[in-house]
């Protein structure tokens, strides 16, 4: 049971961070389908930082690793900003390309990194058993991870920034009605860049949280197993609002955690369901809920449409 709570909180942290990233981007008017790819790149950045650090003190490790993941995520998100804001490219296409690119690139980089240290090592797995301990605090048998705090803090910050600051309200204006925003001299292009970069920040962070949850090494070939897409579902389910995103993330995280630990719970074990059923659950639920809630969708009105100044 303790394990179930622990996994739920871990997965919920990942999902809420990444979904919040998507939330910023979409509120600025750019659909970020490349979150999955951004997560992979952020995870790669963080994992490589952990390899460099070796035996640094815990506090240094935490900050450097987070910084690396965030920086790589933001740099990678520039691919989306560049194509969709500067060149009016199809956002769905670019996002898909970014997901394909990230897994290939991360595998190549991780492998080259391994080969550089040891010419005979051609695997694309990075290990970080020792460094990972910096993030953990044990309360009895409960494994508490600092990232859970980070997720909660960023969710609160997200709420305040979006609804209580000038920047957040302007950002959302660009996703609802960019022509009107431009008319009151808000720079729509700048705001959309801000939205995309913040989504890179949070996506990259989500990536490193995901690969340090539960395991101590990562095989980059497998990407992040659809978590970026699950986060998109969390964002839609959460109606593009940080407070609902947090609740949805908890629920989705719970189902995801069930598939990992259901064998340890007598009642569920007696049901004798395939673990794949639990894996499917979050997707099925979100599809059903979407069917009932999308008529009055809370999606930003202008998302996915490249801004053209001449349509003002």
């Amino acid at each position: 049971m303790l394990l179930l709570i622990q996994y739920t909180l871990m997965f919920a942290s990942v999902l809420s961070l990444v979904a919040l990233g998507g939330c910023y981007s979409e509120h600025s008017g750019v659909i970020n389908l490349g979150l999955e790819g951004i997560m992979v790149m952020g995870a790669l950045g963080g994992a490589m930082a952990m390899q460099f650090l070796g035996n640094a003190p815990a506090i240094v490790t935490i900050f450097v690793v987070m910084l690396a993941a965030v920086a790589v995520g933001m740099i990678y998100s520039c691919l989306l900003g560049f194509a969709s804001i500067q060149f009016n490219a199809d956002q769905t296409l670019v996002g898909t390309a970014m997901n394909m690119l990230a897994t290939a690139a991360a595998t190549i980089i991780a492998r080259s990194f391994n080969t550089m240290k040891d010419p005979n090592n051609v695997s694309n797995t990075l290990q970080y058993i020792k460094q990972k301990r910096a993030f953990l605090v044990y309360f009895g048998r409960f494994e508490f991870n600092w990232f859970m705090v980070v997720a909660v803090v960023l969710l609160i910050v997200g709420y305040i920034v979006l609804y209580k600051t000038r920047f957040g309200l302007r950002l959302m204006a660009c996703g609802e009605n960019p022509q009107a925003a431009d008319a009151v001299s808000i720079n729509v292009y700048k705001m959309r860049w801000a939205g995309v970069l913040i989504s890179g920040f949070l996506g990259g962070l989500g990536g490193i949280v995901y690969i340090t949850a539960g395991v101590s090494e990562w095989k980059f070939e497998v990407g992040v197993a659809g978590f970026g897409f699950l986060a998109l579902a969390v964002m839609i389910f959460g109606q593009w609002k940080p407070q609902y995103i947090a609740l949805t993330a908890l629920m989705f995280g719970f189902f995801r955690a069930l598939s990992n630990v259901y064998t340890g719970i007598p009642f569920l074990k007696a049901l004798n369901l395939d673990s794949k059923v639990y894996n499917m659950m979050p997707y099925i639920i979100s599809l059903i809920v979407l069917a009932f809630t999308s008529k009055n969708s809370a999606a930003p009105k202008a998302e996915g449409i490249p801004y053209d100044k001449s349509t003002r």
Binding site: F229, L230, L232, A233, M280, Y283, I284, S286, L287, L290
Partner: peptide, 9 residues
């Protein structure tokens, strides 16, 4: 969105 969900399901 529905396509992505169905891919995984």
């Amino acid at each position: 969105i529905s396509g992505i969900m169905l891919n995984w399901i």
